[in-house]
Design a protein around this nucleic acid. Structure first.
Length: 292
DNA sequence: TTCCAGGCCCATG
DNA sequence: CATGGGCATGGA
């Protein structure tokens, strides 16, 4: 099979790491084999790899469309240095940013992001990826690439909405099935238009998301940050909680969750969610620092 | 076997 | 407010 890799043009020279972006728990759509990443964005099948500073791709669509899609998805248009400059200058965050050189916050499809994080509660990332893959195979569309690989798109809200509870449970998502189904129906019917939440103030957008059964503050913030252009959203998960308690509230014995929330909403600045990603990944790669 | 995982819901003090 | 049990599933 011919492999015709195309170059994805870079507009900046800041460090970039495809591996950090695709394997940092932001999206559950990507699989890596020998440095080659395979996944889909909506109905587009993609194979990606990084060679030095360059990102190369093979696509199921035409190249020009794919360049637009990927440049946006990987946030190539964002001034990365400017974002990290807004961070507070504390030692731990500085260390985390250095450790995660090339990490970016992806701009995902809102439905795929919402669905992925509805599936995420009390699941390890690898398990979420397994459920994701099953959903794609059972209910997504088949996508064939010119190099011979066959992929399956993540099912749209319409496709999930047509499933039964039983059919979703057969994808091993357990008690999350009714949550996903109800969310799919609300999106498919147009009762909830996810992209419209981009235009709302973050707190109002969050209110709309937590109306969904199975979506609380944490999952809502993931969706706001990773797919709805709200960079101030700061998801507090188990890892971030460990970081907050052992680093930022070391002295305080019993910090209230209210106080923690207040801290995350003010301390990290307008791109708090980006700071969160550095902290999250750094903590996850160094679990020994937070044992207990 | 037991424990826990990018949580959330619901019932109690 | 905040605490605790329950919720499906699978891997360590």
């Amino acid at each position: 099979m011919p492999e015709n890799w195309e170059i994805l043009p870079r507009v900046d020279r800041h460090p970039f790491s495809l591996e950090l972006c695709l394997a940092s728990g932001q999206s559950f759509a990507w699989r890596c084999s020998n440095g080659v990443w395979t996944g889909t964005i909506r109905d587009v099948g993609l194979v990606l790899k990084q060679l030095g500073d360059e990102v190369l791709f093979i696509t199921s669509k035409n190249n020009a469309e794919t360049i637009d899609l990927l440049s946006h998805y990987l946030a190539f248009d964002e001034d990365h240095a400017k974002i990290t400059e807004t961070f507070p200058k504390d030692d731990f965050l500085i260390r985390a940013v250095k450790y995660c050189g090339g990490l970016r916050v992806l701009r995902q499809d809102p439905w795929e992001c919402l669905a992925g994080f509805i599936l995420s509660s009390t699941k390890q990332i690898v398990h979420i990826q397994q459920i994701w893959t099953k959903l794609c195979h059972c209910w997504g569309e088949k996508i064939e690439l010119a190099n011979g690989s066959v992929l399956h798109s993540f099912p749209t809200a319409d496709q999930i909405a047509r499933c039964s509870d039983r059919e979703l449970r057969d994808c091993a998502m357990g008690f999350r099935a009714p949550y996903l189904l109800a969310a799919a129906k609300k999106v498919a019917s147009g009762e909830l238009v996810l992209k419209d939440l981009k235009k709302l103030p973050v707190s109002e957008a969050r209110e709309k998301l937590v109306e969904l059964h199975g979506v609380g503050r944490k999952i809502a913030d993931c969706v706001l940050l990773f797919s709805l252009d709200h960079p101030e959203a700061f998801p507090v998960d188990t890892w971030i909680l460990k970081v907050l308690k052992t680093i930022y509230f070391k002295k305080k014995r019993n910090v209230t969750s209210k106080r923690l929330l207040e801290f995350t909403e003010t301390y990290f600045g307008p791109y708090a969610g980006h700071a969160q990603q550095y902290l999250f990944h750094y903590a996850r790669m160094n679990p020994g620092m937070f044992r207990k």
